[in-house]
Structure formats: C-alpha cells, structure tokens
Design a protein around this nucleic acid. Structure first.
Lengths: 158, 158
DNA sequence: GTTCCTGCAAAAGTTTTGCAAAAAT
DNA sequence: ATTTTTGCAAAACTTTTGCAGGAAC
C-alpha cells in the first residue's frame, strides 16, 4: 500500500516531477529534483527542515543556496508534493505528502525529541466531521501528541 | 464545567498565581499577573502571540517590554498554565491550558486565518492509546484541521 | 527569445541574551 | 540581604526579497 504521491512514480520520478511542475507553469530544475530525491530516499529522515536539506545536499557535493531550498519547499507545498509540519521545534519541517486517507500523525517526546509516526482513521473521520459541520472544505490535518518516551522517563525532567 | 486551571481560582487569582510561581522558586510580578489576566479576560481573544500581548498591554497603559513577555510566556508554559500552539502562522500562539480531558482543538481557514475551536473526546482517547502503546507518558496533544471556510470558498484561492 | 529560477547579499521578522537597575522574597 | 526579574539594546536565528546572471521552456 503506497502512501505517498511520489513513490508511485519512482521509475520516472524526474518526468513525473516535470509534469507536475510544468502543469502549473513551473520548471524542472536540478535543485528541485535533488530536494525531492532526498525526501524520497528510503531509510532516511522523514522530516526535514530547510537547513537540514541544505546541509545534506552540500555534503553530497550539490551546490544549492539556502534561499533556493526555501523557495523550492514553498513550490512543492503548493503543488501538494510536500506537507509542512509544526512539530515541537522552532522551525518548520516538511515531509512527503500523504493522501488524506492515509495520513499519519506524530508522537513527540518533549525531552529527547524522538518522533514516532502513527496512523488512525478516526482522526480523518473527525477532520471530515468538523469541517462538514461548519461548511469548511477539508485540506488536511495535523495531529501531534506530546509526551515523554520510555527512555526519558527514567531521567530527571527539567 | 470548568475547563481551565486558572478560572477555578479566579477570586484569588493573584494568590493562586503567586503560589504556583513560588512553589518553583519564581516570583509574582505585576507583569506576569497582567499577562495572565489578559488570557483570563472573558470574551477576549483566546489565542495570543507575544506581540499581541505586548500591544494590548501597552494600549492599557501597562509598561512591559517585549522580552519580558517572552520570558513570562516561557515560565507559564513550564508551569503548565499556558499551552503553546502551532497554528498556521509563522509565530507561536498561546492559550490557557486546559486539563487534557477537556482539551479543545482548532479548525483553521488557510485563506482568511479564521480559527474555530472544537472538542472531541475521541482525540483524547487516541492520544491515550498511542502513548500507552509505546510506553510514553501523555503530556498533551494538538490537533489542527486546515480547510477553507464557507466565506472564502466563493473567492479565488491563490 | 522569453520567462522562470538561482545565488548572493541584504533585509525582515521573531525570539533570545547580557547587563545594570529595580523589585520580590 | 539575597536572588530573581525587568528593560534596553544588541544579537541570534529562521525566512524572505531584490537583482543580475544563468537555465529551462
């Protein structure tokens, strides 16, 4: 069961991205491709912030400026490829966008920052119910649970 | 049915605040009192950011610096009096903290920024379930639904 | 060829911090 | 009297923007 828009087209990821971009008058650039590849790399980080993206690409020898990263992230959010997350931190994180029905949510340890993901169809139902009741259209939802993970419970919590 | 920690002690709100502060080695100051009074004022804004707090207090003739507002907000979050919200905006918002069982959540119009609140016990149940399953202790949770409100649906969405 | 995109550096906006004076305990 | 808190100004950090050169269409 695939849960992200991008992986479904992995074989021709560049073509797929180009199509999506061009449809809206944007252009395919190597920088945008590299950023999306980073998100798509399996086993890697799921949640990335602009600075992390910039640094990881720099480590791979890619030349890309921070402002380009920010601009690319905005474009991809607007195209529906990425979703912006508000975790416990001061900066914004991004992840590949899941279709609403397979959306996952986050359980964050406020002590060590560990992030767990989970899915729950009820959350989607509640989103649909609340939006319908007020005549809103539903775009997406974000559910974040904060707690202290088992490892950190043993330590003194400041 | 009271839903916030502060209102329960409204008659002696200053004493109540002082007690909470002193218990942790903090001191009661007029600035901290004024900030909490602002949140507690009924019919007022529920969600306030640092700059709004600073401005509203200035309008009332209170002298308080922005840095004091930030410092007071941090103290009150740590004491459990306020909760930090990550709405759709670039800055952080705060509201009086509700006991977990009566927590409310937010429905945000991404176009005009209108914020609706709602309660749903199922959200609390899911929070409890997910934390227990992974051995986390539950601190709180935040559920935000993004959509477009009825008024904005008629307009062109950029 | 035209339009969009990038990189750079500078700017903007929010939040934090160092320090001396003031206030709370 | 001691310790915390405040206000101010400066700094730190994330994010945005203007502009000229370069790349994609």
């Amino acid at each position: 069961m695939e849960t992200n828009l991008f992986r479904e087209h992995e074989r021709n990821s560049a073509d797929f991205l180009k199509e999506i971009l061009n449809k809206e008058g944007f252009r395919l650039t190597s920088q945008r491709q590299k950023i999306l590849e980073l998100f798509n790399a399996e086993g890697g980080e799921h949640h990335l912030c602009a600075e992390e993206i910039h640094q990881k690409l720099a480590e791979q020898g890619e030349k890309i400026s921070v402002s380009t990263v920010y601009r690319a992230l905005h474009v991809m959010v607007n195209l529906g490829l990425l979703q912006e997350l508000e975790l416990a931190e001061e900066r914004k994180y991004y992840e590949l966008r899941s279709p609403v029905l397979h959306q996952h949510h986050h359980l964050v340890c406020v002590h060590c920052g560990e992030v767990n993901e989970f899915e729950d169809a009820i959350i989607t139902q509640v989103s649909g119910h609340e939006t319908q009741e007020r005549g809103f259209s539903l775009l997406n939802s974000q559910f974040t649970v904060y707690g202290i993970c088992p490892r950190c419970q043993g330590r003194y919590i400041n």
